[in-house]
Design a protein around this nucleic acid. Structure first.
Length: 831
RNA sequence: GCCGAGGUGGCGGAAUUGGUAUACGCGUAGCUCUCAAAAAGCUAUGGACUUUAUGUUCGUGAGGGUUCGACUCCCUCCCUCGGCACCA
C-alpha cells in the first residue's frame, strides 16, 4: 500500500531546500574560524539510473559526520564530484548514438539534484568532474611525470583481454579468470601497453600503512595484496651450458632447506626452455634425444593454451616434463634434474624454483608423480611417512642432513645460508611481491588520452606540458575494435602530430587511461578546483591535506586505495604535495552494504531494488536518513526492513509532536516546572550522541535520541521544557534529520540550525544526586540500594547489609570480603 | 592453507577501563480510543521452575582458566563472513 508523504513534509522539504540553496555559505569550506577537517566520501560514477540506496547510505553517513563536525566548530571541507569516465556511459552512447559528454552531463545533473534533495551538505562550489578537460589536464600531467621519472614504460606483453568489452584489463580487474565488469572469461593477448611501476613503491605502500589510522581489515587487505615475502635469490650452475645460459636463478623463502633441494622446476615460458629449443639440433646430436625435445615442445604448447583459470583449476594434478638438463646444488655438489611445469609461474620471482619435496606440498606432489628424490632436512621429519604427504612443520625443528648447518634452528640456518651464498657470490637475501606493475592502457574512447607521442626517430616522447590537456576529439564511432586498437586510432587528423623533441612527423598514443587514473588524486583537486596553473596550489594543499576521514566501500579497499596512495607517494617524492605527512588519508572508514528485503544483494533481475527517491516520496528525506543510520552498525551488512523504517518514522513524528507541544506551552506563557529527569537525560544525550557520532556509531546515536524522546512525559500532557532545552535537543537531531530540525529550530532559534553549534553539556546534570547501586552476594546481583552520590564506602556497605533481601543471603554465613566500586556496585563475598 | 572480522532474545542489534547482560527498534500479547478497522497511545515481553515472589535457577558459539565479579582478559576447539591463494 503506497501512501503519499504528507503535504506538510513536501512543503517543508521544498522550503528548506530553497533556503539552503540561497544560503550556500552554510556549507562553504574555508574562511571559518575553527581547525580544518577534511571529510571525504568516495565520489560516484554517475550512471544513468540515478542514486541507489548504497549511495544514499554512504553519503548520509558522511554528511552526518560533516554536519556534526561543523557544529563542533571545525572548518569542514566536504566536497563532491563525478568519476565520469567509464564503459557504461560509452556503451550507452554507442547504443543511443549520442556523445558520451552529453550523457555524462545529463547524469551528473540528475545526481546533483537528487543529492541536494537528500540534504547533503556538500560544498558545491568545489565540484569536480574527471571528464572535464580542465581536470584531466592534470591527470595527464601526472602521467607525464611518471614517464619522466621512469615509472611509466611501454611494453609488449600478454595482457588479460576481455573479448566482450574488447578491452585490456589490469590483473586486478580479473576475478577468478573472469572480467570483473561483465563476467566474461578473459583470454591472453599480446599488446603493446603502457605500464606503471607501482612495484617500485611496494615497500613504501606497506610501510606507509603504519602511519595511518585505517581499520585493520583495510590494512591487512592491502598487505595481502602486495604480498611481500622475504628470502633469498640464488643461482644454480648448470651441468652443461645451454646456448649462452650457464646458470639458473631461483627465489626461495627458505634458503635453509637448500640441502633438501633435489630438483628444479622452470615455467614453460622460461628463457631456459626457449634456449633449449634454439639449441635443439645440437642437443639432439650430442645426446640423440630429439624425442624428448618433441615432448617438451608439445607440453609447452599445451600449457600456453591454458588460461590462468584453467591452470589454477587443474592445480590438483601436477603436470610436467623433464628438460633433460641438470643443475648443481651449490651446497653439496649434487646433480639435480631440471623439470618444466606450469605450476611454476613465469610472472613471479624468477620463473624458476628449487624444489624441496620433503617440506613443500606442491614440490612433494610433483616429486611423487614423477618419482623424484625426497630428502628431509628438518628434525621431526625422520618419523614422517613420506608416502602420503610432505612434512610441513618447518618453523621449529632443527636442521638435519644439512652438513654443518645441522642442529641450527631455521632462522639461524637462513642467516647461515645467506652468508654462504654471499661468500660464494651466487646469491643474496631478496624480497618478492605478489603485486605486479600496473597496466595503464585501455583501448577505449571514453577515458583520458595518454599524452604521449611516438616519433620514428626519438621513440616515445611525452607531449609538452603547455600543450595539455590533450583533449578527446569528437569521433564518429565509439565502438572499440576487434584489433585491440582504441577508436581514436581511426582519427587520422588527431593522430598526426609532430614530435615534441625533434619536430618531425609523429603520431599520438591512441590508448586511454584506466578508470582509476582520474580517481587517484581527485581529493587533491577539491582543495583548489579552479586552479589553472597547478593541479592545486601548495597553499590550499597545506590548508586541507591530509584527508582526515575517507569513507568508502570495501570494494575499493585494495585497488583504488592502493593506486591512490601510490600516486600520492609519488607526488610526495616530486615535492608537489605537503611534506609533513607522507600518506593521503589519515583514517579510512568502510561503510556497509544494504541488502534487499529478501536478504539478497539488490539487483534489477531479482526485483529487490530499493530506490531512495521512492522511499523519500513515501516517507520524506528525514525518515530515510535516520532509518539508514539506525539500521545497524555503519560498516555492517544489513537487510532493508520496512517495519523498522516505520519505527523510525514514529520516532520522528513523536519528536516533532512533543517539541511542538512544549513550544505551545511556552508560547502560552504557561509556567511549568522543568522535569529533572528530563534534564539529566538531555545532558547525557548531548554527551552520548556526540561520542557516538565521533565514532560513526550512528545506530546508537539514533537510539539515544529515541530514549530522550521517550522520557519526555506521557503523550499530550503539558510538557514543562525550557526553550533552552528545546534548542539543545533540536540541535542534536540536526545532523541526522536536517529538514525537521530546521523546521523546529525556526520556532525557537535564530538563523539556520545548521549554522549553530553543538550544545554544551551542563555537567551538574550529568551525574544524578541519587544513584542506584546494585548489591551482589558472591557476584550475583541480589538487590539494589539508592544512595546519595559520593557516600562513603563504609556507609554504603552498611546500608547494603541492612537490606532485607541481602540479609537472607548473609544469614549464618561469614562475610569474607566486602567490595565497593565507587558508584558502580557492591559485592559481598560469603563462605 | 595464510591474513582479517565476527558468533549476544523470535529478529536487527546495545553494553566506557572487567562491575545491574539484552539499551533502542521490530515482532508478539493484552489494554485504551473507535460502531468497526486503520492510525495513535499505554502495559508486558530471554528460557525454565513454583511457592506467582522484594522468588529460585539457567543463560552472551563449545570446553577449560584467571578474578570478589567475565559478553569483555588467557588457553583449546567449533562455526560464519571478508581478503589473498600452485606466489616457491
Amino acid at each position: 500500500m503506497k501512501q503519499k508523504v504528507e503535504e506538510k513534509i513536501v512543503k517543508r522539504e521544498e522550503k528548506w531546500s530553497k533556503y539552503w540553496e540561497e544560503n550556500r555559505d552554510l556549507y562553504k569550506a574555508g574562511g571559518k574560524k575553527g581547525k580544518k577537517k577534511y571529510v571525504l566520501v568516495e565520489f560516484p560514477y554517475p550512471s544513468g539510473s540515478g542514486l541507489h540506496v548504497g549511495h544514499a547510505f554512504s553519503f548520509t553517513g558522511a554528511d552526518v559526520y560533516a554536519r556534526f563536525m561543523r557544529m563542533k566548530g571545525f572548518d569542514v571541507l566536504f566536497p563532491m564530484g563525478w568519476d565520469g569516465f567509464g564503459l557504461p556511459t560509452e556503451n550507452y552512447a554507442i547504443k543511443m548514438k549520442r556523445k558520451p559528454q552529453e550523457v555524462t552531463k545529463e547524469n551528473t545533473d540528475m545526481f546533483r539534484k537528487q543529492m541536494k534533495r537528500l540534504a547533503y551538505s556538500f560544498d558545491w562550489d568545489r565540484e569536480v568532474n574527471t571528464t572535464d578537460p580542465s581536470y584531466y589536464k592534470w591527470t595527464q600531467w601526472i602521467f607525464l611525470k611518471l614517464f619522466e621519472k621512469g615509472l611509466a614504460y611501454k611494453k609488449e606483453m600478454p595482457i588479460n583481454w576481455c573479448p566482450s568489452c574488447k578491452i585490456g584489463l589490469a590483473n586486478e580487474e580479473v576475478v577468478d579468470g573472469k572480467c570483473e565488469r561483465c563476467g566474461h572469461e578473459v583470454s591472453q593477448r599480446n599488446l603493446s601497453q603502457w605500464v606503471v611501476k607501482i612495484t617500485d613503491y611496494a615497500d613504501r605502500l606497506i610501510e606507509g600503512l603504519k602511519k595511518t589510522d585505517f581499520i585493520e581489515k583495510v590494512k591487512s587487505a592491502q598487505i595481502n595484496w602486495i604480498g611481500k615475502s622475504s628470502g633469498a635469490k640464488l643461482k644454480f650452475k648448470l651441468k652443461d651450458k645451454i646456448g649462452e645460459i650457464e646458470e639458473l636463478e631461483v627465489f626461495t623463502t627458505r634458503p635453509d632447506t637448500l640441502y633438501g633441494a633435489t630438483f628444479m622446476v622452470v615455467a614453460p615460458e622460461h628463457k631456459l626452455v626457449k634456449a633449449l629449443f634454439s639449441n635443439a639440433s645440437k642437443i639432439a646430436s650430442e645426446r640423440s634425444d630429439d624425442e624428448r625435445i618433441d615432448k617438451i615442445r608439445e607440453y609447452v604448447k599445451q600449457a600456453s593454451k591454458k588460461s590462468d583459470l584453467e591452470r589454477a583449476e587443474l592445480a590438483k594434478e601436477k603436470t610436467g616434463v623433464d628438460s633433460g638438463l641438470m643443475a648443481i646444488n651449490p651446497v653439496n655438489g649434487q646433480e639435480i634434474p631440471i623439470w618444466i611445469s606450469d605450476f611454476v609461474l613465469s610472472s613471479y620471482g624468477t620463473g624458476a624454483i628449487m624444489a624441496v619435496p620433503a617440506h613443500d606440498e606442491r614440490d612433494f606432489a610433483f616429486a611423487k608423480k614423477f618419482g623424484l628424490k625426497i630428502v628431509p632436512v628438518i628434525k621431526g621429519a625422520e618419523d614422517h611417512d613420506f608416502e602420503e604427504s610432505a612434512y610441513t612443520e618447518v618453523d621449529r625443528g632443527e636442521m638435519i642432513n644439512s652438513g654443518d648447518w645441522n642442529g641450527l634452528l631455521p632462522q639461524e640456518a637462513i642467516k647461515k645460508a645467506i652468508d654462504f651464498l654471499k661468500d660464494k657470490g651466487i646469491g643474496d637475501r631478496a624480497d618478492n611481491y605478489h603485486l605486479r606493475d600496473w597496466i595503464f592502457s585501455r583501448q577505449h574512447y571514453w577515458g583520458e588520452p595518454i599524452p604521449m607521442v611516438k616519433c620514428p626517430k626519438c621513440g616515445w616522447v611525452g607531449v609538452k606540458e603547455e600543450d595539455l590537456p590533450i583533449e578527446l576529439p569528437e569521433v564518429e564511432a565509439y565502438e572499440p575494435t576487434e584489433t585491440g586498437e582504441s577508436p581514436l586510432a581511426k582519427m587520422i587528423d588527431w593522430l598526426k602530430t609532430t614530435c615534441p623533441k625533434c619536430g618531425g612527423p609523429a603520431s599520438r598514443e591512441t590508448d586511454t587511461m584506466p578508470n582509476w587514473a582520474g580517481s587517484d588524486w581527485y581529493f587533491l583537486r577539491y582543495t583548489d578546483p579552479e586552479n589553472d596553473s597547478q593541479f592545486a596550489s601548495m597553499t590550499e594543499l597545506k590548508k586541507w591535506c591530509p584527508v582526515d576521514v575517507y569513507i568508502g566501500g570495501d570494494e575499493h579497499n585494495t585497488l583504488h586505495l592502493l593506486y591512490s596512495r601510490f600516486i600520492y607517494q609519488f607526488l610526495y617524492d616530486l615535492g608537489v604535495v605537503p611534506q609533513d605527512y607522507p600518506e593521503p588519508y589519515i583514517k579510512r572508514i568502510s561503510h556497509g552494504v544494504i541488502l534487499g528485503p529478501d536478504n539478497q544483494r539488490m539487483s534489477k533481475s531479482r526485483g529487490n531494488v530499493i530506490i531512495p527517491e521512492s522511499v523519500t516520496k513515501q516517507y520524506g528525506v528525514d525518515v530515510l536518513r535516520c532509518y539508514l543510520m539506525f539500521m545497524g552498525p555503519f560498516d555492517g551488512v544489513m537487510a532493508w526492513n520496512e517495519k523498522t523504517l516505520m519505527g523510525v518514522k514514529r520516532f520522528l513524528d513523536k519528536f516533532e509532536r512533543k517539541v511542538l507541544l512544549a513550544v505551545e506551552a511556552i508560547d502560552k506563557g504557561e509556567r511549568l516546572i522543568e522535569d529533572e529527569i528530563f534534564l539529566v537525560k538531555l545532558n547525557q544525550t548531548i554527551k552520548g550522541v556526540a561520542d557516538d557520532l565521533e565514532k560513526f556509531k550512528y545506530n546508537t546515536a539514533v537510539a539515544k535520541l529515541m530514549e530522550l524522546v521517550n522520557v519526555m512525559g506521557i503523550n499530550n500532557e503539558k510538557l514543562g521544557i525550557s526553550k533552552e532545552s528545546l534548542r539543545a535537543m533540536i540541535r542534536l537531531l540536526a545532523p541526522l534529520a536536517p529538514y525537521l530540525a530546521e523546521d523546529l529550530w525556526a520556532k525557537v532559534g535564530e538563523g539556520s540550525v545548521h549554522a549553530s553549534s553543538w550544545p554544551e553539556v551542563e555537567k551538574r546534570y550529568l551525574v544524578e544526586d541519587e544513584i542506584v547501586v546494585p548489591v551482589a552476594v558472591n557476584g550475583k546481583r541480589r538487590a539494589e540500594i539508592r544512595i546519595q552520590k559520593g557516600l562513603a564506602k563504609e556507609e554504603v556497605l552498611k546500608r547494603a547489609k541492612e537490606v532485607d533481601k541481602i540479609g537472607r543471603w548473609l544469614e549464618g554465613k561469614e562475610i569474607k570480603r566486602e567490595i565497593y566500586v565507587e558508584g558502580r556496585m557492591v559485592n559481598l563475598v560469603v563462605g
